[in-house]
Amino acid sequence: KSCSILVTDANFECNEENIMLQAMDNSHIALVSVEIGAPGFTSYRCDRTMPLGVDLTSLTKVLRCAKDENICTLKAADEADVLNLVYDAKSAFFSPFFFAFMWHGRDASSPFPPFFLLCSALLPLFIHLNISLSSQTPITSSWPETKYDTRVTLPSAEFTRIVRDLSQLGEHVRIEVSKEVVRISKLKAKSSAEDEDNDSIPTGVVIEMNQHVSLTFSLKYLVNFSKSGSLSGEVQLLMSNDVPLLVAYDFTQGYIRCYLAPKIGD
């Protein structure tokens, strides 16, 4: 669900060790990279490496049918570009039923059927879905080993609150890191630096830095990144001057990392 805010479709690359996703948004300003290791699943088996092309917008709609206590099983046949999504419901309401959502992979061209939206009214049925997928090419090359000048670790809930609050007041934000202070400032279109409204930084913030950095970013993207905050208690902001910001949420068996290109020439 976090990814679908940024990218509409992407390939889940599956191998014996993990499931990975990496995709850019349409404007090429942000990139999301996700990895979930095999131990993060109750059971996991991958007989051969394969990409699962998924329309994330549609997948998110399917996921809305699940409740927190549902166990979700993903199965893809070896010979077909088909993914089978089954909710093994434990709640009393859902117990007599389970869903089997199926969709074709990247080669499929059939449109997403309109009856999908009626799925909640068709509980006793197996519902088979064909979801058309774009031919967007994901980035498959691994990222270079970037060494950042600063790393700020803070509670993810605080980061979410800060960017949400500031997004009510402006479209951009400047993040400055010095030895003892992280300053996240709202930028006004015609304001001078002295007019910036500083947000307080809560306890639990760790600053690691080699060099002072000051970067400007679009708040809209940061707010979207922060929707991954429920996945991890902490978020790391990795920055160097004039390079993309890395917002990293690590969880027990994987991570979601978001990259955001800065604004330059402020």
Binding site: S141, T216, P244, A261, K263
Partner: peptide, 14 residues
């Protein structure tokens, strides 16, 4: 407010 950069400038794309 400055120019919005894209990621292509910073990272190699296939």
């Amino acid at each position: 407010m400055g120019r919005q950069q894209t990621l292509g400038k910073f990272f190699e794309m296939p």
